[in-house]
Amino acid sequence: MASILAVDDSASMRQMVSFTLKGAGFDVKEACDGVEALAEAKRGKFDLVLSDVNMPNMNGIEFCKELRQLPDYKFTPVLMLTTESAGDMKMQGKQAGATGWIVKPFNPEQLLSTIKRVLG
């Protein structure tokens, strides 16, 4: 089954995302900021990365840029979890190499239907 890296500094969001994805049969690894996520990404190979934008230490945009530099993640779908108020975040995300975004707040169903768009 596809493996997914879920990055969010909020434990409740992480749990929700992780629980939903695991329930749908995915392998999920969690990371709480960009630094941790990058280390995790180097350690394993993920088929999809979901990342929050606003995080301490390394935010989602920087993380995405760094991730795209890794040979294993050149083409891996990266979805940013953003809020609607962060309009130019979408642009920044795209410039950083993000595949797309999921607008917060989202529910588990929306999450699953969105990630199915980019997996497989």
Binding site: D9, S10, S12, M13, N54, P56, T83
Partner: peptide
């Protein structure tokens, strides 16, 4: 960031 997380979580 703290406010943002609270907002995001509360919405979700």
């Amino acid at each position: 960031r703290a406010a943002h997380s609270i907002k995001g979580g509360a919405g979700t």
